[in-house]
Amino acid sequence: MGKNQHVVPHNGKWAVRGEGNERVTKITLTQKEAIEIAEEIARHQKSNTKIHGKDGKIRAGNCYSHTEPHKN
């Protein structure tokens, strides 16, 4: 499982940051764009997203760490 991806406010813009990383992965103009990027990374790494509001508090997120059960 990869690192959870956080969408955080960043100098008047929005950023995607891997959990525990000091540097951001990507800076975007909108939160929506940052969420799309974070979700793509999280799906690929089988991790989760944590969406922060302008106040920095987590307000939402998605889990991509579980796989679909096999159907017979």
Results as ranks from 00 to 15, higher is better:
residue 39 E to W: 09
residue 41 I to F: 12
residue 63 C to Y: 11
residue 14 W to V: 03
residue 4 N to P: 01
residue 39 E to R: 15
residue 54 K to T: 05
residue 65 S to A: 12
residue 43 R to C: 04
residue 35 I to W: 03
residue 57 K to E: 12
residue 19 E to W: 08
residue 44 H to D: 10
residue 14 W to M: 04
residue 29 L to M: 02
residue 71 K to S: 05
residue 60 A to K: 09
residue 35 I to E: 08
residue 30 T to Q: 05
residue 66 H to W: 13
residue 43 R to T: 03
residue 6 H to E: 03
residue 39 E to G: 07
residue 39 E to A: 13
residue 8 V to A: 00
residue 3 K to E: 08
residue 8 V to H: 01
residue 58 I to C: 10
residue 44 H to T: 13
residue 63 C to W: 09
residue 37 I to E: 12
residue 46 K to I: 00
residue 59 R to G: 01
residue 54 K to M: 04
residue 27 I to M: 02
residue 55 D to H: 06
residue 59 R to M: 12
residue 45 Q to K: 12
residue 49 T to C: 09
residue 12 G to N: 02
residue 39 E to Q: 15
residue 2 G to Y: 03
residue 21 N to L: 07
residue 63 C to D: 15
residue 19 E to F: 11
residue 72 N to L: 11
residue 30 T to V: 08
residue 59 R to Q: 12
residue 58 I to Y: 00
residue 47 S to F: 10
residue 47 S to I: 08
residue 38 A to N: 04
residue 6 H to S: 04
residue 29 L to G: 14
residue 1 M to Y: 03
residue 5 Q to E: 13
residue 11 N to M: 14
residue 53 G to S: 08
residue 3 K to F: 12
residue 53 G to I: 05
residue 52 H to K: 06
residue 35 I to M: 11
residue 15 A to Y: 12
residue 32 K to A: 14
residue 32 K to N: 10
residue 61 G to D: 05
residue 10 H to Y: 15
residue 50 K to I: 14
residue 37 I to K: 12
residue 9 P to M: 03
residue 33 E to V: 08
residue 33 E to H: 11
residue 58 I to P: 06
residue 1 M to T: 07
residue 18 G to Y: 03
residue 60 A to T: 00
residue 64 Y to V: 04
residue 59 R to S: 05
residue 18 G to E: 10
residue 30 T to S: 15
residue 67 T to W: 07
residue 32 K to P: 00
residue 30 T to E: 04
residue 1 M to F: 05
residue 51 I to C: 01
residue 52 H to N: 07
residue 26 K to F: 07
residue 7 V to R: 01
residue 62 N to K: 14
residue 53 G to E: 01
residue 6 H to P: 00
residue 7 V to M: 03
residue 15 A to D: 07
